[in-house]
């Protein structure tokens, strides 16, 4: 459905952030993209959704194809209309708008008013808590509710592909669990393909059908969650385990300096 081939992104005409990034997102699946801070995960998403331009970023090499059409360097509004919707990192709800107005803004690219109330109802069935607060100003919602609103806003656009940028950021573990379950339900019930960018490797590997691991601007490892969970490096650097269920001691942590196998 979506494929990135050797994508190179440069910010401000000098800073090379993505260095030949390639990945595939097949229709109807949940694909995870893991990596540390600064690996280029968010840049990858912005390259897909067209939000690089206002930040002076540019796809200088390679191609991004969605449903067989090249979409790199298109305007974001065009890309949203094609069916890609990015839920940005840090929730980014419209603080001075009410919950319902936020959702209506999400449906901006959809035509016809008739389906609007139906879509609102659909979002409220996934997030009953939003219904309780539909008239409240979004800036005063709790972090978890804001994340729900951000995902609900995306649902309003009926995207074919939803890009989720760190939905777990700053939320309590229980809430994260709840949100991931809803994401899985959306994937199954609405048939929405999902590209999930996360730092939380454990949870991502639980929900994803396939995952990529990214480091300094390129993919270093990929596989099904089962394969990745077996990989010694992933276990050590991303899951923090040496043996199943056993936490690392400080002495082992010092081994962190050990060069990762895939870099050598």
């Amino acid at each position: 459905m979506l494929s990135l081939n050797n994508v190179e992104v440069i910010y401000n005409k000098v800073i090379l952030v993505l260095k030949g990034m390639s990945m595939q997102v097949p229709q109807g699946k949940i694909v995870g993209l893991l990596g540390a801070n600064g690996a280029g995960k968010t840049t990858t998403l912005k390259a897909i959704s067209g939000l690089l331009k206002p930040e002076d970023g540019e796809v200088t090499d390679g191609s991004i194809e969605f449903l067989g059409e090249p979409i790199h360097n298109r305007d974001p509004e065009e890309i949203v209309r094609m069916g890609i919707f990015q839920v940005m990192e840090g929730r980014r709800v419209f603080e001075h708008l009410t919950v319902e107005e936020n959702l209506i803004a999400g449906a901006y690219t959809r035509h016809g008013r008739g389906s609007l109330s139906q879509d609102l109802e659909m979002v409220y069935t996934y997030f009953p808590r939003l219904k309780e607060r539909y008239k409240q100003v979004a800036g005063y919602l709790s972090g978890g509710e804001q994340q729900m609103l951000a995902i609900g806003r995306a649902l309003m656009a009926h995207p074919k592909l939803m890009l989720l940028d760190e939905p777990s950021l700053g939320l309590a573990p229980l809430l994260v669990q709840e949100i991931f379950e809803i994401v899985q339900r959306i994937n199954k019930e609405q048939g929405t393909t999902i590209l999930l960018v996360e730092q939380n490797a454990n949870l991502t590997l639980q929900v994803a059908d396939y995952a990529y691991i990214m480091e300094s601007g390129r993919i270093v490892l990929e596989g099904t969650p089962e394969e990745l969970k077996e990989n010694a490096d992933v276990r050590e650097f991303y899951l923090g385990l040496t043996e199943v269920g056993k936490r690392k001691s400080y002495r082992d942590v010092k081994h962190y300096k050990r060069r990762k196998r895939w870099l050598s």
């Binding site: 974001p76 209309r81 919707f85 940005m88 419209f94 107005e101 936020n102 803004a105 901006y108 690219t109």
Partner: peptide, 25 residues
């Protein structure tokens, strides 16, 4: 408060980039 364009206008005022991410020009 009622029209799509009006709400979109307030959305742009609130957070331009987030508004762009939902296809608002």
């Amino acid at each position: 408060t009622r029209s799509k364009e009006g709400i979109a206008m307030r959305a742009v005022a609130d957070d331009q980039q987030a508004a762009m991410s939902m296809g608002i020009s």
